[in-house]
């Protein structure tokens, strides 16, 4: 059962957005995720282990890049696979601006099984913070039918 993907071409940018991460976001994410590692909230601890400062949770950066996907797709059930490599730490300064994360999603492949391979480019200050950031999705607007019913 192949979905209609005639709108998509390989190399096409499907979405692009900038997300900001502030210290407040880190506190919220720590509570929501249960990841209370102090390198994500204490300058003192971060410095003591040789880090340049408090770092964003890698999973928060992954979640923001994932948001680009689900905003494009509408339905999170359309995400079939999603993976990243945490290649560079994201330092979050203790100010109101925080740090800006730029995310761009590009069609990498239209597969024979109807799925779309999307490459995510995720950068802070022009430097990639996630590498091998890729997802496999159903095309946007396709009925995913969730399948969570008993």
């Amino acid at each position: 059962m192949r979905e209609d993907r005639t709108d998509l071409t390989v190399g096409q940018v499907v979405a692009s957005a900038q997300y900001r991460i502030t210290r407040e976001n880190l506190v919220r994410y720590a509570g929501a995720s249960g990841d209370f590692n102090p390198i994500h909230w204490s300058d003192r601890v971060a410095k003591s282990v040789g880090l340049p400062g408090v770092l964003a949770h890698g999973m928060l950066t992954m979640a923001l890049a994932g948001r680009l996907l689900t905003d494009w797709l509408g339905d999170p059930a359309a995400v079939v696979e999603y993976g990243v490599r945490f290649s560079r730490p994201v330092v979050v300064p203790d100010d109101d601006e925080g740090v800006a994360v730029d995310v761009t999603g590009t069609v990498a492949e239209l597969r024979d099984d109807g799925l779309v391979a999307v490459e995510l480019d995720v950068r802070v200050d022009e430097q990639k913070v996630l590498t091998q950031a890729r997802a496999l999705t159903r095309p946007p607007g396709s009925h995913t039918g969730a399948g969570e019913s008993s």
Binding site: G58, V80, E81, Y82, V84, F86, G147
Partner: peptide
């Protein structure tokens, strides 16, 4: 140190 993470979903 979390090096990489990947999920394969049957459903949400």
């Amino acid at each position: 140190v979390h090096v990489d993470q990947r999920f394969t979903y049957a459903r949400p």
